[in-house]
Amino acid sequence: MTRSDRELARRFKEEADEFWFRDVRFDDALKQKVRDRIGKERAAGARSMRVRKTALGALALASAAALLLVIVPQVSPDRQPASTVILSGAGGPGPSPAGGAGDVLVMEGATTPAPFAGGMPSEGPAVREGVSWTPLSAEEAAEAFGPGLAMPGWLPDGFSLRQIGAFGEREGEVFAVTLMYMSEDRTFWLTLRKAGRPEFFPAWQTVDINGAVGYLNAAPPAGGMPAPAEAGTDGAPPGAPPTEAQGTVPASAPEAPAAPWPAAELHWFAGGVQYELQGAITGEEAVKIARSIPLATEEN
């Protein structure tokens, strides 16, 4: 900018501020309106999740059953692969909670919705095209995935580890590990995937996971059991309004059909590992589980 240009800019700004924009300010009320609209979007996202929660919950149970149906034949002495140790130290396969599951998880070369596409919530662990899935023991999974593999130190009452599976595109390669936890009537998955950069879910509630930014989408079950994350953990800046911290449907929101179990999905990233927690758990449970998992570090 030349000197005359700078003078022109100064006059322009002075006159515009005085004559055009004297009372035109983006004040606190407008900022609050933006926050409110974001809060409504989040609530709408939660409602949407409640609608699909029925499918998610059913899929969770069906997937668990499918896992067992697919895996159990392999544990028979004549079919079990040498490298496969099923449910080691996890209490053994439990009874299938839902019958007639169908092929939710497919082994080799399956084409099902990928949980690793990023950006969009996925409907339970599935396998993308060209990816193989192999059941492993905890020790094998740790060896194959590396030291970044860590398990929750806390689980909701009644849950136990029922299955570990490793994903890879080539033999011997493991880029992701999924751990399935079940209780009598609920299931959730924890997936750890090697990743170069974090995934983001801009419309979701943010929560603190031991210093990492977590993205939470949670919906309570029908008839109560609200699942808010703890107050003050939403990652909002100081002074942010309460709506920034809300992850549940406000009382005034229209009710959507809901299942009798909660649903939550939580993603976070640390040390080159993308963590994904999803299933029939509350948002509060998801956050607590996530915080009990030692985060991977770059040294890992």
């Binding site: 933006v34 974090p198 983001f200 801009p202 943010t206 990652g235 909002a236 920034e244």
Partner: peptide, 9 residues
């Protein structure tokens, strides 16, 4: 910040 809420503010 990377966090959209904080960046928005």
């Amino acid at each position: 910040p990377a966090d959209p809420s904080a960046a928005l503010e």
